[in-house]
Computed example of a mutant assay.
Amino acid sequence: MKVLHVIDGLNDGGAERLLACLARSGAGVETLVASLSAPTDATASQARILQEAGLVPSYIGVGRLLERRATAAVAAAVMRSGCDVVHAHLEYSTVLAARAARRTGHPFVSTLHHTVARDSPLRERLKERWALRAAGRAGTSLFVSQASLQAAERLYGRRGADWRVIHNGVDMDGFTPPRHGRRAALPPELGVPAGAPVVAMVAALREPKGHRIAFQAWPAVRAAVPGAVLLVVGEGTEQEQLRAAAPEGVVLAGRRSDVAAILRGAVVALQTSYTEALPTALIEAAACGAAVVATDVGGTREVVQDRITGLLTPPRDARATAAAVVELLTDDPLRSALGAAGRDRVVDLFDHRSWGRRLAGLYHERAGGERHVNENDELADGVR
């Protein structure tokens, strides 16, 4: 079974990391990757993520969705690949790959990794609506959380389309707790003082990730826990603005290839997003044994159970964020208990091997093989 994964481009590492993880899942499916956009110097590091997993991306070279040749170019890439199933990721790829799969007669699956709300920009809502319509005509639409699927239902209605939930997986072999229960030493080039309580925030530097709320909360955290450091990992469109706005005790580390090592050196992981489909960064943090503070938005509740595996706070509430972080930094037994419970939960529910098996079942179903059991999945009972 060969599956061609079509992605918009090698932009921020998200899709690349997921597909690399899928390739390592041992699900018995050959993973091929095609990028709509052509490679650039800026995409070299993302291409290496795929190459390290044994994947060599191809490039279709479509610059704009409305190019006259776009669908034909994607269809040609599908035929060259020799794939059995086409799986598109994100909106632009979904629209074009759905059209191409209908033209070539290939079974089609798409995954929409974001959650679009009523107050999202009109452009984003139109992109998602367009993608869901295209996917509905061609095959199966996957959502990475119950919350994401339900949000789409509220906005657009089901209309008989084949919509399912399959939660993304994480390679737990790469995200493990520190040995002997002691937090690991952080890389020295980060400049974090030895022994400082470190809160890690791993997220692209974009407005929906809510970094400014974390920054607003940080002076109160430092007042209660002197020397505490907020270590921000990631890059993005708000990088310069956030660097200028960062209060004392915040370290912006930029893009890092050693995220697991950083999480092993942190005592708490923080997420202050305004919206989340499924927060992979929190799954990775919990797998490393870090206690979690997160805003109760989107699919976050499907990862974090309040006061069982972490602490949930209202979105855009700097005071509540500060209080939750301080509680975990100052209550060692609570922090340890939540960290241990969080790791048990994510290993049980989000391991990449079980994720790969669920996707493989769907691919075989779409290709006319054995029937796939719709997941909607074991997490559903825990979040309703």
Rank of each mutant, 00 (worst) to 15 (best):
residue 262 I to Q: 02
residue 76 A to D: 05
residue 121 P to H: 01
residue 203 A to V: 04
residue 302 E to L: 06
residue 366 R to S: 10
residue 140 T to K: 12
residue 226 P to N: 07
residue 362 L to R: 11
residue 30 E to M: 12
residue 253 A to P: 04
residue 48 R to E: 12
residue 302 E to T: 07
residue 136 G to N: 09
residue 142 L to Q: 11
residue 187 P to Q: 02
residue 45 S to T: 10
residue 180 H to E: 15
residue 196 A to F: 05
residue 335 R to H: 06
residue 230 L to K: 04
residue 1 M to S: 14
residue 102 R to K: 09
residue 332 D to F: 00
residue 170 V to H: 06
residue 305 Q to P: 05
residue 91 E to M: 07
residue 182 R to E: 03
residue 219 P to I: 03
residue 71 T to D: 14
residue 257 S to A: 15
residue 6 V to D: 04
residue 324 A to D: 01
residue 279 P to E: 10
residue 281 A to W: 00
residue 346 V to F: 07
residue 92 Y to V: 15
residue 369 G to K: 11
residue 170 V to F: 08
residue 75 A to C: 00
residue 58 S to I: 10
residue 61 G to E: 13
residue 63 G to K: 13
residue 280 T to K: 10
residue 134 A to E: 09
residue 284 E to T: 06
residue 299 G to A: 05
residue 120 S to P: 09
residue 352 H to D: 11
residue 285 A to S: 12
residue 355 W to D: 04
residue 369 G to I: 13
residue 126 L to I: 13
residue 338 L to C: 10
residue 81 S to C: 04
residue 122 L to C: 06
residue 243 R to I: 11
residue 31 T to P: 01
residue 381 D to C: 14
residue 92 Y to P: 07
residue 6 V to I: 15
residue 310 G to E: 09
residue 353 R to C: 10
residue 102 R to L: 15
residue 283 I to Y: 01
residue 116 V to C: 02
residue 157 G to W: 01
residue 11 N to L: 10
residue 137 R to G: 01
residue 347 V to R: 07
residue 338 L to R: 02
residue 262 I to Y: 00
residue 94 T to P: 10
residue 18 L to N: 06
residue 227 G to I: 11
residue 340 A to F: 04
residue 74 V to E: 04
residue 363 Y to F: 08
residue 76 A to H: 06
residue 365 E to K: 07
residue 118 R to S: 14
residue 193 P to L: 09
residue 321 T to P: 11
residue 75 A to M: 01
residue 170 V to P: 02
residue 100 A to D: 00
residue 318 A to W: 05
residue 54 G to I: 10
residue 264 R to Q: 13
residue 201 M to N: 09
residue 5 H to C: 12
residue 140 T to V: 15
residue 63 G to S: 14
residue 289 G to L: 07
